[in-house]
Nucleic acid binder design. Structure first.
Lengths: 184, 184
DNA sequence: GGATTTATATGATTATCGTCATAGAAAAAG
DNA sequence: CTTTTTCTATGACGATAATCATATAAATCC
């Protein structure tokens, strides 16, 4: 053992963390294992001591991102006792501009669906968010609409070249959800 | 000339068509030029007689998809004199299950954004759809929300593994937009 | 302290990527 | 019929992909 006993678990965590960031920022297919390992000061060959394949890494990285997002959302909700602050942060310019730290739905999940590697973890994330939106808005069949609008607005705001249009998509979606939440 | 005079324009169209389908179904990065050309009975080398690079093809394929979608939407709108039928078809199981023939926003545009190759063509598609939703609903600041919800619901419905959840996302979004359109 | 265990590195394999220079072959032009 | 033009094919380029067998080196165990 060149490094101390729990060094492997630590390295494992670092790979997972960096992969989860790159998958969200650049896409899964566009992320190579070689550059990923190099970014951590490791060599590509060592990868298979940690994961049995790239697909294995992808699934675990999605779970990592899901867990971190879930923790973050819970914190936001508790801070204010409501879901309004969560919506604000989801539909913020900051979230739009830092996909690598954000929700994995508009990035990883959608690509995994395209690749025919859809994961049940995606269902879990969707259901978690639906639950949060529902709890604040118990009578509404609009939770699914709110979530769809959030994911769509964020995705589109990242795809469009006109900054004003990008802002408009976020802003109007934010405003509508607030309306809905207040009218309960 | 091994083939007749306008054969090149024809081949060009075929490449564009097949590329635009594959980019939407499998993703841009995951689509190779070699398999693409082979699927048309051509060899990979001939590609560069038609396009100056893959990026060039990507942009043109997006424009092709945009044009075809726009034509289709116009037809749907005229059929009924409204936008309701368009929403139904956008949020249908058929559209969900045949991304290669569908709207390029949830597939190509979003990946191009990820790759830092965002195109003004995306803005055009967004504005075209916003315009259509607006014309039916002139007083609403909700056009951007409707469009976001449509793109988000379709994307999520393709990513989720549970068929019931997938259907629910489409159905509830469909229902809400109908409500909004009727309440104008 | 010597033997064993194990985390990482080296380097190779095979495949596929985007790109391009060149060749061939047939239609059009003379 | 010969020349020229132009569409497509051949085959190679260097890069990079994912994967894995083997080597190295240091921490733990006896």
């Amino acid at each position: 053992m060149r490094y101390s006993k729990d060094h492997k678990a630590e390295t494992n965590q670092q790979i997972l963390q960096e992969a989860s960031r790159r998958f969200r920022r650049d896409g899964i297919t566009a992320t190579g294992l070689q550059p990923l390992m190099k970014a951590l000061g490791l060599t590509h060959g060592g990868f298979y001591a940690h994961f049995k394949s790239k697909d294995d890494l992808v699934e675990q990285a999605l779970q990592t991102a899901a867990q971190q997002s879930s923790d973050y959302w819970s914190k936001k909700q508790e801070e204010e006792g409501g879901v309004s602050k969560l919506v604000d942060s989801y539909l913020s310019a900051k979230h739009r501009d830092t996909p690598e730290k954000g929700c994995p739905l508009p990035t990883m999940s959608i690509e995994m669906g395209q690749l025919g590697k859809a994961s049940a973890t995606t269902d879990k994330i969707v259901e978690r968010l639906l639950g949060m939106l529902h709890s604040d808005h118990a009578d509404a069949p609009h939770a699914a609409v709110m979530l769809s609008a959030m994911v769509g607005a964020l995705s589109l705001s990242r795809s469009v070249t006109d900054p004003a249009l990008s802002e408009q998509l976020l802003e109007q979606t934010r405003a509508w959800i607030k309306e809905e939440l207040d009218s309960k």
